[in-house]
Design a protein around this nucleic acid. Structure first.
Lengths: 215, 215
DNA sequence: TAATTGAATTGATTTAAATCAAGAAGGGAA
DNA sequence: TTCCCTTCTTGATTTAAATCAATTCAATTA
């Protein structure tokens, strides 16, 4: 929880990128910076007593819940620059989701109390955050449509294209294990494996382990 | 777009219910009130040039998208007191969703421009809205979990219990046609029909047309 | 009132994806 | 390096839900 004096991870976060410099500097003073989470470790979990939002300076993470039967549902895939848990800046309830590093991560975070203090005299900040919430809702809706109106092959291809677009690349490594990606797409690992094969066979992608290339 | 002088629909909306009275009064002055939408009509649709958020003073509505193949995905079920489209208070992009009255509706709405003016000097308002966004995200996640980790029967029962809880009742009329509810749950109408039968046969609910009673 | 139209239901059948099963590949730890 | 454990892949089989098909029902309107 070192407090840097210079503009760090926060200013790189998509969510705050349009804020004026003085405000960014203030945000940095109330943030923790570049906490290290090794692959597999939990950035957040239910009942950990932590509040506020987090964002990824580097690495990848997955957000998921467990239902009462222990079945996992992957809700979000976090890539470098993404943030999540904004809802914890306001509600006083405990968060219910697990956030687990799927690669070594550097994470910045902001506490509810500190954030709320700042919010009172920064309409810009509120607006920025409201915009970001809007984006997250739209993404959530997009994921719902993907699961609801596409078959297995279409879902896989749609995700890959979407991810490539987000990165601005046509080749990349998957940000999650395939079993987690399968879950995120509402599929089983077996089905994902077969669909990746099929997409490669039809010349639409190249797959080598975690590496994907779009054609 | 009549401008009432008294506190009307807006003050009843869940999203604003915790705001101080003077602020509510100001909100009323920038809202349209109780516009009537007959069953089947569109409250919003892509390219209608409308912006801002809406909320339901009475009636029911569904929010849905059409994919390029024309397949519908029902994203939200709106009941009395619910609001949607908050994301349109900020982004300048066009909204992509259809909002259609599934019963006769009275609708209030607020325009982006008017709202943003108010937001600048009302931190309370921003906070209220941010809270609401958080709720909507959590609901969206809950819907994802329902679709991802439950079979057809569980989804139906979970929805019915959820809806009953929301209303504080054990008997109610479904807020949508069954074909739309089926879509919202990621099912076909045939499957919904059969599952409602099965739930009735096992004594868990009573079904009479749109009327549902939970046991 | 009857006619029309879409919604809902019921039954028969198909099918996409899940499940089951077994081996191969990969990544740590000792 | 070997061992262990999890993930990934491939094949065979099952199954839950979709699809197809045909009535029935309900709402609207002429």
């Amino acid at each position: 929880m070192a407090h840097h004096s210079e503009i760090a991870c926060l200013s790189k976060a998509t969510i705050f990128k349009n804020l004026p410099l003085p405000l960014k500097k203030k945000l940095v003073t109330i943030s923790s910076h570049q906490d290290f989470f090794p692959k597999g470790s939990f950035i957040r979990q239910p009942l950990d007593g932590k509040d506020g939002m987090i964002f990824l300076d580097s690495g990848h993470a997955k957000v998921y819940t467990l239902n009462t039967a222990g079945k996992e549902t992957v809700l979000e895939v976090l890539n470098k620059g993404d943030s999540t848990g904004q809802e914890n800046l306001f509600s006083t309830g405990n968060h219910e989701n697990f956030i687990q590093a799927t690669e070594d991560c550097l994470v910045c975070s902001m506490k509810r109390h500190d954030f709320q203090m700042m919010l009172k005299d920064s309409p810009d900040l509120a607006l920025s955050l409201l915009n970001d919430f809007g984006e997250r809702l739209i993404t959530a809706e997009k994921n719902t449509v993907r699961r609801n109106s596409m078959n297995a092959k279409e879902r896989v291809l749609d995700y890959l294209k979407d991810h490539g677009k987000k990165l601005g690349k046509t080749s990349f490594n998957l940000p999650l294990q395939k079993k987690d990606l399968a879950n995120f797409l509402g599929l089983t690992p077996e089905t994902l494996s077969r669909q990746l094969n099929a997409l490669q066979a039809s010349g639409q992608i190249i797959v080598k382990g975690q590496f994907i290339s779009l054609n």
